[in-house]
């Protein structure tokens, strides 16, 4: 139990996918202009990461490892992720057409979100069992959603601030992202103790 809690904290905060591993930066900059959209994107990605990493774990364990097909890893993982994204798209379209419209192109682009494939490859690298990998994937994606929500909140405030003309728009977004990443580096001290 203690290991699992450590795993959750480590995946969500200490080794945050966005701010420590620098994965998924495209959607991190792309859909964080409004907090509602960012939370919606976080939830969609959480679902995709959790479901696809379960599938990826099964494929790694029962197909790639026994038959020594490691070179097919990227292709098969992407296949599973793409299917999960398509499914998520259908569900969101059915459940919340408004969210479907606001997420727009970023929804199918979850397929190419490197955080999704990155988490799946980290599971393989860490040689985790099924429960560990599911918990790790869920915690990683929670960390992603958390950072998305925080950053969207910051950007909503920055939108009202009087930013110098040179920095207005994306530049100040990147500066804020780097400051946020520095703040999250504070968590890395936790792993040492």
């Amino acid at each position: 139990m203690r290991d699992l809690i450590l795993l959750i904290v480590g995946a969500a905060l200490v080794n945050n996918v966005v701010l420590a591993r620098f994965l998924g930066l495209c959607s991190f900059m792309g859909v964080t202009t409004k907090i509602d959209t960012a939370v919606g994107m976080g939830m969609a990605t959480t679902f995709v990461i959790t479901v696809s990493s379960m599938g990826d774990w099964a494929i790694e364990r029962f197909l790639l490892m026994p038959f020594d097909l490691g070179y097919l890893r990227t292709v098969t993982f992407i296949l599973v992720i793409a299917a999960a994204v398509q499914f998520t798209e259908m569900v969101i379209r059915k459940v919340s057409p408004a969210l479907f419209q606001t997420l727009g192109i970023y929804l199918p682009l979850i397929t190419t979100n490197c955080a999704v494939l990155g988490v799946a490859l980290l599971l393989v690298e860490g040689k985790m069992n099924f429960i560990q990998s599911t918990v790790f994937a869920f915690a990683s994606s929670l960390g992603y959603s958390l950072v998305m929500a925080i950053f969207a909140g910051l950007r909503e405030r920055i939108a009202l601030a009087d930013v110098p003309r040179l920095f207005a728009g994306p530049p100040v977004g990147f500066v804020t992202a780097s400051l946020l990443a520095m703040a999250f580096m504070g968590f890395s001290g936790m792993s040492a103790n």
Partner: peptide, 12 residues
């Protein structure tokens, strides 16, 4: 195995 996976996921 790739073909089988594609077919299965497509059917799903």
């Amino acid at each position: 195995s790739l073909a089988a996976m594609g077919t299965a996921l497509g059917a799903l």
